[in-house]
Amino acid sequence: MIVLSKTLLEIKNLTTSFRIGEEYYAAVDDVSLELKENEVLAIVGESGSGKSATAFSIMGLHNRAKIEGEITFKGRDIANLPPSKINKIRGKEMSMIFQDPLTALNPLMEIGRQIGEVLLLHNSEMSKAKRREYSIELLDRVGIPRPDRVVDQFPHELSGGMRQRVVIAIAIANKPELLIADEPTTALDVTIQAQILDLIRELKDDLNSGVILITHDLGVVAEMADRVAVMYAGQIVELADVESLFVNPQHPYTKSLLSSVPATEYAQDRLHVIQGIVPSLQNLPREGCRFRSRIPWMDESVHEEDPKLHEISPGHHVRCTCYQHFYFPEESKEEQTNGVT
């Protein structure tokens, strides 16, 4: 990147823990990230990786979680802000797009009032008529046909794709500098997905906002992201610009994920299957390389005792030393006896 743009968000050593029984378990474990203006940072991982928990920590949406570390947004630490202060930021300077547009809107409220609410909350002087007028403008902006009619309709009268556009209209209503999109297209059809991604990209350029895109879909990452953080079991295991990640993936988890997506140049006729299962929050290995148990054919000595992120080229970070020796079991004949389950 030649253009030097301003840092918008800086996360340092973020650890988000949930209480289960008597103990706290970290779902996000020592995550550090940076996001610049007009940049799209994708956080990729499977369920239980901590990607959504990271997004919720930034938004302050966790109800009963212990949040440690710093979340510096526009020069100010917003981790653990009291509700009255974080509410001034949420919906205005940063906002969020949710996964399922069918459940993200209040079924008993007209579309116009749901958009109007976010306008009113951050500008109590805006009149009702003005809010309505602006809501129609926003609906038009996100590509909803006949916005003057839709503004008085209820969510159930709209299709899934249209509802997601309404959720996006709410998110951009106050021109936020940070937009967090949590699996924004997972529940949508492919052609609608393409349209929604185009819309997010366009709006980002318009508003010069930074976007954090949470997804499990590597295709969406390749289409949207400038930089990518791959998360596994609460940690970032690889962080790189999008080209390096796809052209030169390093971490065993990244490589495994890529080769398990069907019908891509990474996939074989037989898809790669990561052995074992994602450990639950209570059973996360807290010491050593967390991916170790998923690549049991590798020699124990290739792992670091206390795996760190290593910068292997400018901006490309990989956790643990095991990446230097990694190979797929299929590549070596004698390793094939390791029964794949």
Partner: peptide, 12 residues
């Protein structure tokens, strides 16, 4: 989810 969205809007 819509309660989450209400909180994300900054509603007290």
């Amino acid at each position: 989810d819509f309660i989450l969205l209400a909180r994300a809007k900054g509603a007290p």
